[in-house]
Simulated scan of single mutants.
Amino acid sequence: MTFWRRRVAKIFPNHLVTWALGLLFMVWLGGYAATVNNTVPSLFLIQAWFPAEDVFFGTNGPSWSLAAELLFYVSFPWLARWIQAIPARRLWLCAGLLFTGTVLVALASQLLPTDPDMPYYPISWYQYWFVYCLPATRMLEFALGIVMARIIMTGRWIPLGLGPALLTLIPGYALTVWLPDAYGIVAPTVLPLALIVAAGAVADTENRPSPLRNRVAVFFGEISFAFYLVHILVMWYGPMGRVPGRTWDTLPALGMIILDFALTVLAAWILYRLVEVPAVRRFANARRKTGPPPPAAPAVRDQASTPAGR
Rank of each mutant, 00 (worst) to 15 (best):
W4V: 03
R5F: 05
R5Q: 12
A9V: 06
A9L: 01
A9C: 02
I11P: 00
I11A: 14
I11F: 08
F12D: 02
V17M: 05
V17E: 15
T18N: 05
T18Y: 02
A20Q: 10
A20K: 04
A20L: 13
L21C: 04
L23G: 02
M26N: 01
V27M: 11
V27T: 13
V27R: 12
W28N: 02
G30R: 02
G30I: 02
G30S: 01
G31R: 08
Y32A: 05
Y32V: 15
Y32Q: 05
A33N: 03
A34H: 00
T35M: 02
T39D: 05
T39L: 03
T39M: 04
P41H: 07
L43T: 04
F44P: 07
L45Q: 09
L45G: 09
I46R: 10
I46H: 06
I46G: 10
A48E: 05
F50T: 03
F50Y: 13
A52D: 15
E53Q: 12
E53D: 12
V55S: 13
V55Y: 11
F56G: 06
F56I: 05
F57T: 14
F57Y: 14
G58L: 00
G61E: 08
G61D: 15
G61S: 15
P62T: 05
P62Y: 09
W64G: 02
L66W: 12
L66R: 13
A67D: 08
A67V: 11
E69C: 12
L71Q: 10
F72E: 08
Y73Q: 05
S75A: 15
F76E: 04
F76V: 12
P77I: 04
P77S: 12
W78I: 13
R81F: 00
W82Y: 09
I83W: 01
Q84H: 11
A85C: 00
A85E: 12
A85L: 05
P87A: 12
A88G: 09
L91R: 11
L93A: 13
C94D: 00
A95N: 08
G96A: 03
G96E: 06
F99C: 09
T100G: 15
G101E: 15
G101R: 05
A106M: 05
A106H: 04
A106G: 12
A106C: 09
L107I: 10
L107Y: 03
L111K: 07
L112Y: 05
P113L: 10
D115Q: 08
P116L: 04
P119N: 10
Y121W: 11
